[in-house]
């Protein structure tokens, strides 16, 4: 363990930080203090108490399924493409989910309906790539195993 930090310096630093945060905070809360507070605190709560447990439980489920089949080490082949696809959805859900179709199309003159299709295609490519890698590695391992086996005596 670290020895307790210089308490006074840390207290002063925190006080300074709170003062600045307060100065900006009263301006941030501005006209809609309730809404902004909800968003600010809600973002932290939603992440820590909903999003993180959700993906952790989903991940544990995948690990368990592979574990039950005796192939725990293969988890990554599902985890990586699934997580990357979920990440893209998390970041671009307004466009992928079509939430802003009308505004996006009107404002930019660009088609707003391609995002879902492109996301699904990327997801397909990610899983296909993972499957391909898995098969390649499997073949490599099998070949190595055959080579290492002593020649069969007839």
């Amino acid at each position: 363990m670290r020895k307790p930090p210089k308490g006074t310096a840390q207290l002063l630093l925190l006080a300074c930080s709170f003062a600045l945060a307060g100065y900006a905070g009263v301006r941030l809360l501005g006209d809609d203090w309730l809404g902004v507070t909800l968003w600010f605190v809600g973002a932290a709560l939603l992440h820590d108490l909903v999003l993180l447990p959700l993906y952790a439980v989903a991940d544990r489920g995948v690990v368990r399924v592979f574990g039950a089949a005796g192939h725990r080490e293969r988890t990554m082949y599902v985890r990586v493409p699934a997580a990357l696809s979920a990440l893209l959805l998390l970041v671009w859900f307004p466009l992928i989910g079509g939430q802003v179709d009308r505004r996006y199309g009107m404002a930019t003159g660009l088609p707003a309906d391609g995002f879902l299709g492109r996301w699904l295609l990327i997801t397909a490519v990610l899983f296909a790539g993972s499957a391909l890698l898995f098969l390649l590695r499997l073949r490599l391992r099998l070949r190595r195993a055959t080579k290492d086996r002593p020649p069969v005596a007839h």
């Binding site: 945060a21 905070g25 941030l28 809609d32 902004v36 671009w92 307004p94």
Partner: peptide, 23 residues
């Protein structure tokens, strides 16, 4: 993404929020 769900105008929220965060 032009998805203006947040409570108010983007500029003050993102600017003052940045200072609170940065502190």
């Amino acid at each position: 993404q032009l998805d203006y769900l947040f409570p108010g105008s983007f500029y003050p929220l993102h600017f003052y929020g940045a200072w609170v965060f940065f502190a």
